[in-house]
Write a protein that binds this DNA or RNA. Structure first.
Lengths: 164, 164
DNA sequence: ATTTTACGTCAGTCATGTTGACATATATTT
DNA sequence: AAATATATGTCAACATGACTGACGTAAAAT
């Protein structure tokens, strides 16, 4: 541990610590998403479909533009995925009541079943990690990940997550 | 807060807590990667190129198959990106000394510069999140993310991260 | 009445992943 | 020494999910 770098350069340990934190995020995210991907594969859906199902499931009645804002993709990109989900009966649209230009999005029964299936698998994975790590660690996880969200829209993102 | 769901279903709060943790990971990862993507864009490189530069930079002399094992992509996918990086002078290969079938990978000067540039931006982001969150939270972050890594190769992954 | 907004859609392109087949050099095993 | 296995490269075809740009339509706002 007392090698040249750490003796001569007090920033070295910190840099190394940060590099490790970055790789940890990479590996954790890779394995976290792998489970969902496997399930979705059976339906010939990809990660993009999952994201739509996930967010529509958690925000029933949300509009297309809200969804675009969350996903940060173009409407053309979304449309291919979304119209596919609608055609195959996992998502449905209803005209907005106040503003009839809006298309409000809902999961169908089938959509809800798939959402549950994938979500359950992911929740179990996270629940295991939480259980092993303990309550205090969970609080730390939340704090750090919150800090990784871009400041300029952190509040917006947190509001959406917490659905205040 | 005392709505029907939480009164009748003691699992509801836990489920909600887990769903929030999942979305938090999604948003944090999205914003974390956005910074690097921007820099890479100036070089006409994508996230795939970055991953190669990152891991080669952290494991100088690693072989192609080690890299494949980390990235979990096919050699054909890797090859397109890798040969591009070599052609453009960011990565170089040297024949393995013990096993001359192996191609050991190194960053060139230019490669190292780019790696530093992207890494510095990412480290600053993480450093800010760590600073805001505090030391205890950082420990929790590590614990939870470690737990999210697939058990079957968690030790392998951790060894690579910590470079023991 | 005009303009803006929310959404849909067509067409083409790019990056990055996949499978499958085959080649070549070197190491290992028989 | 010959046969086999391994590490790597490469060609070809294809899928997914991003992108840009252009255009259309209905409804809301001015």
């Amino acid at each position: 541990m007392t090698d040249v770098k750490s003796v001569n350069n007090p920033l070295f340990l910190r840099e190394e610590e940060l590099r490790q934190a970055i790789e940890l995020l990479f590996f954790a995210y890779r394995d976290f998403t792998a489970g969902a991907d496997n399930i979705l594969e059976d339906y010939n859906f990809g990660r993009a479909h999952h994201r739509v199902i996930h967010f529509v499931g958690r925000n029933e009645g949300m509009t297309v533009s809200e969804l675009l804002d969350i996903l940060r993709i173009t409407k053309q990109s979304l449309n291919r995925v979304l119209s596919n989900l609608i055609k195959r009966g996992f998502v449905e649209q209803r005209q907005g009541e106040e503003d009839r230009r809006q298309r409000c999005l809902y999961l169908t029964e089938e959509g809800r079943l798939l959402e549950q299936k994938v979500s359950r698998a992911q929740r179990e994975l996270v629940a295991n990690a939480f259980r092993e790590a303990g309550g205090e660690a969970v609080a730390g996880y939340r704090k750090v990940l919150t800090g990784l969200i871009d400041e300029t829209h952190r509040d917006t993102a947190l509001n959406r997550i917490l659905k205040t």
